[in-house]
Amino acid sequence: MSVDLAFEENELLPAVAQDADSGEVLMLAYVTREALERSRETGEAHYYSRSREELWHKGSTSGHVQRIEGIRVDCDGDAILYLVDQEGGACHTGYESCFHRTIDGEIVGEEVFDPDAVYE
């Protein structure tokens, strides 16, 4: 990698997935060095699942993969931005974006799939 990333200070870096066409923020997850390398190799988003403590290929269960169109790094090298073409919904709850509600609980996003049907 030609940009210095802060993996030495932080084992995990936050990674924001943003729709490459619309600019909508889809989700926030975390990457390890291995997840980032796998994303670059395959052209599809990989993250690190903190709950399962393992590498995670986005869409491996649901089919809702994120094809990477570009990867950007913030000025401090401690956050990643994936510009993606999202297949289906990004949120495991069935919404297009994980940011589908306001702080007051109002639903403002679009539900695009039934999460129970995906994970049966």
Rank of each mutant, 00 (worst) to 15 (best):
T102G: 12
A79I: 08
Y95W: 09
D76F: 00
C75L: 14
R67D: 00
L81H: 02
C98L: 13
R101V: 06
C91K: 11
G105W: 12
I103N: 09
I103T: 13
C75H: 13
Q86I: 06
A79K: 03
G89L: 00
I80W: 02
D76W: 01
I80V: 13
D74P: 09
R67V: 01
Y82P: 03
L83I: 00
L83Q: 03
A90E: 14
R67L: 00
G105T: 11
H100P: 01
V112E: 02
L83V: 00
H92P: 07
I80N: 04
A79T: 14
V112M: 01
D85K: 08
I107D: 11
I107H: 03
D104E: 03
D116L: 04
G109Y: 04
T93Y: 02
R67S: 05
L81E: 15
A79Q: 11
L81A: 04
E111A: 13
I107N: 03
S97Y: 09
G88S: 07
Y82N: 08
R101F: 01
G88P: 07
V108S: 07
D116P: 05
F99A: 04
R72N: 05
P115G: 13
G94I: 03
E111S: 11
E96K: 13
V108K: 11
C75T: 09
H92K: 03
V84W: 05
D85Q: 10
G94W: 03
R67A: 05
L81S: 10
F99I: 02
C75E: 15
H92C: 05
A90L: 08
Q86D: 15
S97H: 08
G77T: 15
D76T: 05
F113I: 10
G89M: 01
I80D: 06
D85T: 14
